[in-house]
Design a protein around this nucleic acid. Structure first.
Lengths: 359, 359
DNA sequence: CTGAAAGCGCTAACAT
DNA sequence: ATGTTAGCGCTTTCAG
């Protein structure tokens, strides 16, 4: 572990008491003679001394560590969030325990327990699904929590901060955009409907469409898995539908991109034959062809805000109690090239296998 | 932090001493009366007691935490490595401090120091560039280290494990493959040449080509940044070259994919006009069209092996000293659809802008 | 079989 | 301006 030297070694070498060393360590220099300070500092250098943060934590009750639960680092959606969190953490001297739940509640619970056990100062819950059981567990330990996009079924106490995402604004913009382009036949590729956020996105999309007189029944909705292959897999099902959409809203960018690739491979042109809108604005979205029109979440900002809120809760823990910590993140439409005017005579799709075989 | 209850509370409730509680906590049950064990266990449940791992660490000198330094979580290359590390860590009750160096040595050093200061049991160095300064710092603290793909300039002590990647095998297979397909004019898109691994990959590629009588001078080599936009940016420079390649080996998959997209956009067909091989085998590689032929690194396995090696070093720290910890990872070619027979009469490229404008 | 006591490395009153 | 003392919560001899 540490370099082996303790505060006692420093005290001895400097010819002072541990308290004095501790004082200079913590910059309580107000009543110490300058030359004493120098002696201590010199001894510290000499011995290459580093205070043990474990011992410090034992008395301070602070570990300067937080846990970050996400579903899967492999999902590009999370990388910018992580960076946002890390950037704030770094300046505040905090470190981050990264935990991939792998969309598995049990695995998540294991992490929660090991983090609580390690006495992290707080936990950021950013996985796509957040279990009530986790929260219960964390409340037992009075561990401060900030949760992203989670809608508690029962009220939670002051130690839980909530970050909610206003999908409504962005999704409505998407619908407006499509409508202006002349689209009237829509489809939605949702995420797994057992996830609350999947249901919310779908519902907002349908209700926005309702505002234009499009009934929910008339829009084709298909469920996918929020990954590339999910979006890809949906095309065939959609081709079989009696009436085919000219515009598609996907629950996230990966789904949208997977769908676009499948469509292109089958000879459908985007956006000439079909317009596609995603959600997230992952980096890949602007790098594919055509660049994806998408509802953007400011992910880096989400990370930053979440970490700041968590620190806030940690610092004001006992004082403010019952105060609600909340932040609302607004989404907005980024118009790129995957959306265009609706085809005049859509007709049925003429899917031909591309000459490029699938692997 | 913790639920507030201490071992003393448990001892009192159970009507035993702290030592006894400690014994059942650590499963030293050999000399304890079964009914005593039960009393203690009952008290633990009753109080919802969790031992403080901070206090434990203070005496055990173990924190059950390790640091993982990578360049950038946003790089899909790392996500599987992280998962590999995490999977091993989870079963051993370790947690992982994730640190993004952002390709910045100074930032890396800050992390190293804060990790050493937090007394992590070990550190995994997996960033694309590893600074000697970091190692020096870590040796000061006797922190066990496992470094990926790093070639120390001076010998290091027994607390540093090395994981080396045999790029040779995979890259030679790639060259063989291209040669068999009839290619004779090659190009290489390297990573930044100040990175040792970039130079190594380039050199292996050139020397393998040399084995077929192709001189290094005759192969067009261009430097890029290992990201999508880097690969994309290279196309124009390549188009200006007097003699154009029919086969390209890129330093990593992102570069290869960026290049392919740029090529397709300009009307070049892959693999009919040009064959492209990447390196890494990131998930995206098999999901694009055409699926990418690539030299695969078993990234998940690398993560697992690295973490296992680190634990090994941690556990045998004092006993074995001077023993070298080493692992060698072999790469191999995954043939997909981005490589094909060389065009009969290559001619010069006829780059036309695709109808789809770039954003 | 169980308890008492000392100590891990540090901080924080309380003295002086 | 600095030293003394008493813990923080746990483990670990050493006694009994």
């Amino acid at each position: 572990m540490s370099s082996g030297k303790t505060i006692t070694d420093v005290a001895r070498l400097a010819g002072v008491s541990k308290s004095t060393v501790s004082r200079v360590l913590n910059n309580n220099l107000q009543y110490i003679r300058p030359e004493t300070i120098e002696q201590v500092r010199h001894a510290i250098k000499e011995l290459n001394y580093q205070p043990s943060s474990v011992a410090r934590s034992l008395v301070s009750k602070r570990t300067l560590a937080v846990g970050l639960l996400i579903s899967d680092v492999g999902n590009p959606y999370y990388s910018e969030v992580i960076r946002g969190v890390e950037d704030i953490a770094l300046v505040k001297d905090y470190n981050i325990f990264l935990c991939n739940t792998s969309y598995d509640h049990a695995r998540g619970l294991k992490f929660i327990q090991s983090l609580a056990n390690k006495q992290v100062d707080g936990i950021l819950l950013m996985s796509s699904s957040i279990s009530n059981e986790w929260i219960t567990e964390l409340e037992r330990f009075h561990t401060p929590v900030v949760a992203l996009d989670w809608y508690p079924s029962q009220p939670v106490d002051g130690e839980v901060g909530l970050i909610t995402v206003d999908f409504e604004t962005g999704i409505r913009q998407a619908v407006d955009h499509l409508f202006k382009l002349g689209h009237r036949r829509f489809a939605h590729i949702s995420g797994p409907l057992h996830l609350e956020t999947s249901r919310i996105r779908q519902q907002i999309f349908l209700s926005a469409l309702g505002g234009y007189g499009i009934s929910a029944e008339s829009v084709l909705t298909l469920e996918a898995n929020l990954r590339l292959d999910g979006g890809r897999g949906v095309l065939e099902r959609m081709a079989l539908s009696p009436v085919q959409p000219t515009a598609i809203f996907a629950a996230n960018d990966l789904t949208a991109i997977g769908f676009i690739w499948a469509a292109q491979q089958c000879g459908l042109r985007v956006p000439e034959d079909i317009s596609v809108i995603g959600l997230d604005d992952i980096q890949l979205a602007e790098e594919i062809l055509p660049p994806l029109t998408t509802v953007s979440m400011p992910r880096n900002e989400i990370g930053k805000i979440a970490m700041e809120m968590l620190l806030e809760i940690i610092e004001n823990k006992s004082p403010i109690n019952g105060v609600k910590h909340n932040a609302h993140i607004v989404t907005s439409l980024i118009i790129r090239k995957s959306t265009g005017v609706a085809p005049v005579d859509p007709g049925r799709w003429d899917l031909r296998r591309s000459q490029i075989a699938v692997n």
